[in-house]
Write a protein that binds this DNA or RNA. Structure first.
Lengths: 216, 216
DNA sequence: TTGCCTTTGTCAAATAATTAACGGATAATA
DNA sequence: TATTATCCGTTAATTATTTGACAAAGGCAA
């Protein structure tokens, strides 16, 4: 069934969105849905939905459509929501705390097991149910708990050095919020750079264009 | 010079990254740079850089390259960093506060002028230098201050209704962090949906794939 | 059961994005 | 000043992505 032979990133980036919409449908107790109906909800083409889903296997049935619950489960499995990757967060400033509190790691295949900050005044303070540790403790912690994913909410100046050190300590993936383009040369390491500032800037651009259109 | 006739979103999404790298180069007092050098830094092709920049005009010079400071200024102008769009933020929970504190709106063509929350216990509390107002005051505030951009850090259940209301009050652009795909049917309205959860899920997927590669 | 309607999976076509190639302009150097 | 190497802007080729089309499979109603 799973013909999982290198899927394009365009497809992968759409999967979480399918997963969310199917979750909503499941909540609304919708049992089945056709690619056409789903395409109207999600504002994309039915063809694209069928193409995307077919990268992983034939989850649908002619004349019927897709069974919402099982399709959602399949996509979840593909994404890895059933996994339990131990995850640490470095940098418990405004953003770090907010990420720790606001993101539901558990429903996304991750488990937040440690929070670290270089500021000793934060040591011992708890975020959610997790106590902030000093960054000096990272090495020992990694040797014991073997976290796989690191969330970086630290100043850009430190990011590369800390990331390199974390790779040595066994971290495989970085979710990087620092204002820095993290790249790791080792292969077998994944990096997701977020760059909220860039996101806002593209909105500024489009907002600015709106004004220009009006002028014409 | 500016041959600004509908630029593809692929290009637009790369502009903030160019802008950042050029900023770093300027800080390091690098005066000029060639597309080849920049391509090595940014890990993309020189051809793409030249192609991208040429959407807006010939900023470079043969045999010399690009003048860092003026190229950065040009890209900044294209993005609209010199603008001053009044911006409000709705929802002063963990994430809302962190965004308000962490994002430098001023360097991105925006000015944060108001923060609102439905919880009356937060009213009067300040975030940075801005006092939190109750959401009941939004209408009056918009009529007086005419904000253009709204940052939404609210629960998904309220998002569409609040956004629709804000459109009536003159908001043109939404930077939406709520776990909901905001769409506005009016044209002349821009939406940037962030979806941090989706970003993490794609990392979970890739982390999971790493494990599978090892097994082979 | 029969026939019609729906809808998928897949292949082909169209569109978009990226990369390569190269002429011509400029800088650097002797 | 002449020569060589650099490097942009642009066009063409390649690759990737999206959309359209349709046969085959299955649902549904009579």
């Amino acid at each position: 069934m799973a013909k999982n032979g290198n899927i394009s990133t365009s497809v992968i980036k759409r999967l979480p969105r399918y997963y969310r919409f199917l979750g909503e449908l499941e909540k609304q107790e919708v049992e089945r849905i056709s690619s056409r109906e789903l395409s109207e909800m999600m504002k994309l083409t039915a063809s694209q939905i069928r193409q995307d889903l077919n990268c992983f296997g034939g989850f649908g049935q002619q004349g019927y459509g897709y069974h919402v619950a099982s399709l959602r489960e399949e996509i979840g499995r593909i994404l890895g929501v059933d996994k339990d990757f131990p995850t640490i967060l470095i940098g418990a400033g405004n953003l770090g705390k907010a990420i720790a509190m606001h993101i539901n790691f558990g429903t996304r295949g991750c488990r937040l097991v440690g929070i670290f900050d270089a500021n000793p005044r934060l040591t011992g303070e708890t975020v959610g149910s997790i106590a902030i540790r000093h960054t000096d403790e990272i090495e020992e912690f990694c040797n014991e708990e073997h976290p796989v994913i690191a969330v970086l909410c630290i100043p850009k100046a430190n990011t590369q050095a800390i990331a390199d050190k974390l790779v040595e300590l066994g971290i495989k993936s970085f979710w990087n919020f620092s204002h820095y383009d993290l790249t790791i040369d080792h292969k077998g390491i994944e990096v997701e750079n977020v760059h909220l500032g860039d996101s806002l800037l593209t909105l500024t651009y489009r907002t600015n264009q709106l004004g220009k259109v009006e002028e014409e």
